[in-house]
Design a protein around this nucleic acid. Structure first.
Length: 845
RNA sequence: GGCCCCUUGGCGGAAUUGGUAGACGCUGCGGACUUAAAAUCCGUUUCCUUUAUCGGAGUGCCGGUUCGAGUCCGGCAGGGGCUACCA
């Protein structure tokens, strides 16, 4: 039927159609108030040098959505740009003497051409790089506006210092006490830093997770909820014995107040520092705590330690005197940096109390009596309060409410909401970032650069011959005059965290022509991003910062909504098997082969196959997208990366898999060529099974894409291809034409080049990427007859084929007469027959 | 330690949301075509029993609800993720 020797050459047809798309600006997006818009976006890539498989998977996913939405009639915006500031460019400069700008723009050129070779339907007219002054001048303007809205402030504070990157990191960029990129243990330093007041929006950022982000993965919503870390509690004021000042503490368990046996101060607490002056033991303990830092892995194992200050606080109810200790497990930057400790109800407090022989007062008894006696385990469950004066007999929540009421009446405390979220420190001591538009004047202090003097551009003549920030070493750049008083002044040499660049870029895509303002009117039309796709590693950092920025820009009147991304999808990683030679060295996939069930290297030495893990340079298990495109074509690569796993899961790349995809593209080409050969205009045969299958396919693929279930869409396509090959001879010429036309539009989101090529072969004018999704005839989606399985006592025994609207009584009768049922019943009387129309029959004996 | 998710053939995964478990693909095996190979095509691939039928078991394990459970409920085990002294 189809001739086995017909082949198509991806190397010929793919560049041909890529050129046509570019020529005709097929994907250029223009606002059109009469059409519904759809903003599809992949997370902004860092121009590291070349595309990797993770990019290819990401962009293919978004591209399939974008192409599908276009054919569904949406006005689609699908842009691309570059997160172009960042440390690797400086490292390249340091190591190889290339200027960061040169290195970056060269990488961008390369990666742009690679993305084009994948056939991603980008509107390239909107492209930008965040390292270009045309981009960062707007960011500087936004900085000044945020500053005047009090959403940015300057503060001397303890910061996370990465000794390898020689820069400060935000809390979100410290993982397990180590720098997120360098992996170096983070040190504590006190520095003057600029901060975004992200905490101004704590409640809004939290409540919108519930109210507005219903199209976000539950996992990401949970992570952000935890990160914001809202807790309801109380702030209590303790009088101090023999002093006029008071001690404020935060607790979520005011009901445990009668179990208080000591107070705990953080080593950074002002009261602790004051005591230290006259108390060498306290002073040396504080020093010890500071030396440890917040970061050391040792903290995990670190014992609860402390020292008695000799001061005493007065219990607000009983008047008892409670000793005040400095303890190493209390954080300065959560709550007030001080606590009252109830050892019976908190494991940390209990460990501490046991170590220093402090009393333990049981205050909560569980239903089985647990909690009334405390040994080595604190009782944290609910129950009835005991030994607690007027709280006795109340539950935890009743006790909290009653105690807060009491505190408020006596003026000794009040209910308070606390968040774990901290403000976002944005200063970085690096060259390759957006300059902070501030001038430091000895007389006027920190003075904003006036808007008409923007941008503050980076100097190009910088040296990378010594570590640290080249801006500090530049002979002239930092010297300027104060915009206010005109005296000699110094520029801020810190630059902005690169996460600032990516916190509003999705808005800038909407306004490619605005040169004076960050945004023009187009943003109102395009926002929000309808479908955002990227890796889950940005669940807290980038996605939280962007949500903050959006709120700031709303406050400034740039946008109307709080949330930037209506729909979010987080894709899984691309993985590959690992290979190891006998000496333990890693081998790349192209350096090994399988011979009769065993693996060997190209010289025939044994190779052991290791676990399948994320593609990485160190394990050498990566596969280059460009090599794949060269060998099999972009369409085959796209097809494979969509076909195998659901996109939210990790995707195992294999040579056999991509070869299978390549075979499919060839088979598809052969089948469609064969169909086209016999196609002629005439009357369509509505009853043909292949035509019905085609209608069903368009319907199923549409549903699958909207569900982000590309693997299902592809399985359905295979089913149809199998059917069409079987039915080939039965399809009349007019029906062939109809099927091919529909089929090409339906698969075009996945294999766009091949679809265009065959579209042209069919004799259609224009591009398939511009064609409308096929209208579906609902009548063709249902079969006239259905096959019903028949169960006896829940076990399948036979089946019958009946007209789809057959009467229930009649179905029962037919079912009872089937051979399988009669054999199983063996004369027994059914007690009940359940007929679910169109589904199943179950006979109960 | 806390919170969350996952577990279906040799493998990736389907299953109309409580209704024929294993679609579709990959791999393997058998065969056709070919001098041969490549390519292509056909068959087969959950397990047990059987020559084949007929049958039995089966979605990590134990139990429950239901005419009917991969799907719902309770418990357990294994794997993964996030977070971590947050009072």
């Amino acid at each position: 039927m189809t001739e086995s020797n017909i082949r198509y050459s991806a190397a010929l047809i793919e560049p041909k159609w890529q050129a046509k798309w570019a020529e005709q600006k097929a994907f250029a997006a223009k606002p059109d108030p009469n059409r519904e818009k759809f903003y599809a976006l992949a997370m902004l890539p860092y121009p590291s040098g070349s595309l990797h498989m993770g990019h290819m998977r990401n962009y293919t996913l978004v591209d399939a959505v974008a192409r599908y939405r276009r054919s569904k009639g949406y006005n689609v915006l699908h842009p691309m740009g570059w997160d172009a500031f960042g440390l690797p460019a400086e490292n390249a400069a340091f190591e190889r003497g290339v200027h960061p700008a040169e290195w970056t723009y060269r990488n961008i050129d390369n990666m742009r051409s690679e993305i084009k070779r994948v056939g991603i339907s980008i509107d390239w007219d909107r492209e930008f790089a965040t390292c270009h002054p045309d981009y960062y001048k707007h960011q500087q303007k936004l900085f000044l506006e945020f500053l005047s809205e009090d959403l940015i402030y300057q503060k001397e504070s303890v910061v996370n210092w990465d000794p390898v990157e020689m820069t400060v990191l935000a809390n979100e960029q410290v993982e397990d006490g180590k720098g997120w990129r360098s992996g170096a243990p983070v040190e504590r330093k006190i520095m003057n830093q600029w901060f975004f007041r992200i905490t101004a929006f704590s409640e809004s950022l939290l409540s919108a997770i519930e109210d507005q982000l219903d199209r976000w993965p539950a996992k990401v919503r949970t992570m952000q909820t935890n990160w914001i870390g809202k807790s309801q509690g109380a702030e209590l004021t303790f009088q101090l014995v023999g002093r006029k000042d008071v001690l404020k503490i935060y607790t979520t368990r005011p009901d445990t107040i009668f179990g208080a046996s000591f107070m705990g101060l953080s080593a950074g607490h002002p009261l602790a520092k004051e005591v230290a002056k006259a108390h060498p033991e306290v002073a040396s303990f504080i020093k010890e705590c500071e030396a440890l830092g917040t970061s050391e892995a040792a903290i995990e194992k670190a014992e609860k330690k402390g020292v008695d200050t000799g001061l005493k606080a007065i219990h607000p109810v009983t008047g008892a005197e409670i000793p005040i200790w400095v303890a190493n497990f209390i954080l300065m930057d959560y709550g007030t940096g001080a606590i009252f400790a109830c050892p019976a109800g908190d494991q940390r407090d209990l460990d501490f109390a046991r170590k220093y022989g402090l009393p333990v007062y049981p205050i909560m008894e569980g239903s089985n009596g647990s909690g009334s006696e405390i040994l080595d385990e604190a009782y944290t469950g609910d129950g009835k309060l005991i030994n607690s004066d007027f709280l006795n007999g109340l539950s935890m929540s009743e006790g909290k409410a009653r105690m807060i009421q009491w505190l408020e009446e006596k003026g000794a405390g009040n209910a308070i909401t606390n968040y774990r979220l901290r403000d976002w420190g944005l200063s970085r001591q690096r060259y390759w970032g957006c300059p902070i538009p501030i001038v430091h004047c000895e007389i006027c202090g920190a003075v904003p650069v006036p808007a008409d003097q923007l941008p503050v551009t980076l100097p190009e003549d910088v040296a990378f011959d010594k570590p640290g920030n080249p801006l500090d070493h530049h002979p002239t750049w930092r010297h300027t005059s104060c915009p206010k008083c005109g005296n000699a002044a110094m520029r801020e040499t810190d630059t902005m965290d690169t996460f600032v660049d990516s916190s509003w870029y999705f808005l800038r895509y909407c306004s490619p022509n605005a040169s004076l303002e960050p945004l023009d009117g187009e943003a109102k039309y395009w926002m929000n991003v309808d479908q955002y796709v990227g890796g889950v590693e940005h669940a807290v950092l980038h996605l939280l910062y962007s949500r903050f920025f959006m709120r700031g820009m709303k406050q400034l009147g740039y946008v109307e909504q709080d949330e930037p991304f209506s729909g979010l999808f987080t894709q899984g990683m691309v993985t590959h098997e690992t290979y190891q030679a006998s000496d333990g060295s890693w081998l790349a996939p192209e350096e090994v082969r399988q011979v009769e069930g065993r693996w060997e290297d190209l010289d025939g030495n044994d190779v052991s196959v290791g676990p399948t893990i994320k593609m990485s340079k160190s394990k050498r298990n990566g596969v280059s997208p460009m090599d794949i495109i060269e060998a099999y074509g972009a369409d085959a690569g796209r097809w494979f990366s969509l076909s195998d796993s659901p996109p939210e899961r990790d995707f195992e790349w294999s040579e056999a898999g991509v070869e299978g995809a390549w075979r499919f593209t060839q088979r598809f080409y052969r089948l469609v060529q064969a169909l086209i050969k016999g196609a002629k205009s005439g009357e369509v045969d509505v009853g043909n099974p292949a035509l019905k299958g085609m209608h069903r396919l368009s319907n199923d693929v549409a549903a699958a894409i909207e569900d982000f279930a590309f693997n299902r869409a592809i399985a359905k396509t295979y089913e149809f291809i199998n059917l069409a090959e079987k039915e080939l001879a039965s399809i009349n010429p007019a029906t062939r034409y109809e099927i091919v036309r529909r089929l090409l539009i339906t698969v075009a989101p996945f294999i766009p080049h091949l679809a265009e090529e065959l579209w042209e072969a069919l004799g259609e004018s224009g591009l398939v990427c511009k064609a409308s999704w096929p209208e579906i005839n609902e009548a063709l989606l249902v079969d006239d007859s259905v096959t019903l399985p028949i169960q006896v006592n829940g076990k399948r025994r036979d089946q019958i084929s009946v007209p789809k609207d057959m009467d229930t009584k009649q179905i029962e009768m037919l079912a009872l007469q089937t051979e399988g049922v009669r054999r199983t019943l063996a004369g027994a009387e059914p007690s009940k027959i359940i007929v679910v129309p169109g589904r199943i029959i179950n006979i109960v004996v």
